[in-house]
């Protein structure tokens, strides 16, 4: 349940990006979460509700974009989706695959009320 700690980080980022804006009302928060992180979407959603309560983020939509785990074989160059973290190359059966994507964990964008300038 480190999702509470992760969400504290998300709210720090929200604050840093909105404190100087006239539009204080955050209506959407978009996160990008790779498959090979230990962040569980349901737990992130629950933590989001807790942190949003009583802030300008309350009631905002939380969008979680999942990124599949993709790996590339150092041996034969095969690249593709890796099921269940089995890092054995489907092409040449060798071990030793590099993670191409799936470790992402970041705030992509925020939607705030009003048109700005």
């Amino acid at each position: 349940m480190h999702e509470m700690a992760l969400m504290a980080g998300v709210f720090d980022i929200i604050r840093e990006n909105t404190e100087d804006l006239p539009e204080k009302n955050v209506t959407r928060v978009t996160l990008v979460v790779g498959e090979m992180t230990n962040a569980v979407p349901e737990a992130l959603e629950a933590a989001f509700e807790v942190y949003a309560k009583g802030t300008p983020v309350e009631g905002a939509e939380l969008v979680i974009k999942n990124v599949p785990l993709m790996a590339k074989c150092r041996g034969c160059g095969w690249e593709g989706k890796t099921e269940k973290h089995v890092f054995m190359c489907p092409g040449c059966s060798s071990l030793g695959m590099e993670v191409v994507s799936g470790r992402e964990l970041y705030v992509e964008s925020l939607e705030v009320d009003g048109d700005g300038d």
Partner: peptide, 14 residues
Amino acid sequence: MEIKVNTGILSANE
């Protein structure tokens, strides 16, 4: 208005 952020959630820890 959309704000592009692209900041790692763990960036403060990192």
